Amino acid sequence: MRTIKQQHRAVSAPIADLTTFRALPTESVEHLDPFLFLNHHGPQVYRPNNRGLPFGPHPHRGFETVTFILEGDILHKDSSGHESVIEAGGIQWMTAGSGLIHAEVSSDNFKKEGGPLEILQLWVNLPAKDKMVEPRYIGLQKDEIPTVKLDDGRVTVHAVSGNWAGTAGAVQPLADVQLAWLNLQAGARITLPIAAARTVFFYVVRGSLRVNGTDTKALQLVEFNHDGDALTIEASTDTVLLLGHALPFNEPIVSYGPFVMNSEAEIQQAYRDYQRGAFGTWQG
């Protein structure tokens, strides 16, 4: 069993009227290679005739964003011509690669009708060899994401990428990054094999559980040592867990605002490229 290195509490970081908890980075943890950033938006309830999500057009280069829509919806639009509305239970996987401009806002229907909203956005680094790949966007609704039932149905694994108990995830990413979110009923217990060399990303969205004998709860990011090849998870209450794992890239990470590269020179080049229009033209 892996031992726990440290638990990190997500910090309150509201954006306009959007309730937000930032789990990564915080004062106690900068990144978990190759996992760079996690914002947990909500849970909250929007009134009718609201302004929706505040993420208007902005650029990215050098990494991927994976967005989990637990409640509410997101309208994605980008300078590569992709546009879709993904609803509760769906995901968006965007490879920024060499650069694009995108917006993440609420649909007209959500702004008109309101309702509950809870969204997780995870940034995953790209290895140096893939940082300048052509941008890609995948938007999947709930019924397009395979699920796996474990522990006599008390655990549901939503397999986003990689392989989970013999079931392939919906997305085949450039790097070997396995991602899923799990719904665990109170009393559920599972053991998952994860090779010791891999970095585990383990964030409790709702509820409380015990992992490898240690208690944790909502808004906690659990950091593990590389000293074991299994996680045993026991749900103390009904729980939602964001779980991932990947081999660390062990490359320099230089980030500034919306760009994540391997050197300061590459960051400066990203700004120059963006300013000269190399990320595409935004059509409002």
Score class of each variant (00 low, 15 high):
H31T: 05
R2L: 04
F279Y: 15
D33V: 06
L182N: 01
E134V: 13
H41I: 11
L117I: 15
Q141H: 15
F63K: 04
P146K: 13
L100Q: 13
P59Q: 08
G244A: 13
L174D: 09
D215T: 14
V66Q: 00
T26H: 08
M1P: 11
Y203A: 01
G257A: 08
N183Q: 14
I4E: 04
G114M: 09
L241T: 00
E144M: 08
K77A: 14
T95H: 03
A13P: 00
A96H: 01
F37C: 03
N39D: 15
P193N: 10
L100R: 00
T20E: 07
H31D: 06
A128H: 09
A278V: 01
V222N: 10
V240S: 11
N250A: 11
F201T: 08
N125A: 05
H102E: 08
N49S: 10
R276D: 10
G207W: 01
D108W: 13
D17G: 10
P43A: 11
L122W: 02
I91G: 03
G162T: 04
D227Y: 07
W282T: 05
S28P: 00
V85A: 02
S28R: 06
G62C: 06
V177S: 04
L120P: 05
S255I: 00
V204D: 12
G52E: 03
I138D: 14
Y271V: 06
A165Q: 06
L120I: 04
V29Q: 13
P43W: 08
F224G: 12
P252V: 00
V157N: 05
T167C: 07
A168K: 12
G228F: 10
Q121S: 01
R51T: 12
L38T: 07
V133D: 05
F63L: 15
L241G: 10
D151F: 05
Q141G: 14
S12D: 08
R154F: 04
T20V: 15
V240A: 12
L182W: 08
R210W: 11
A218H: 08
S255W: 12
S28I: 00
F279H: 12
N225R: 01
A88G: 15
S208F: 00
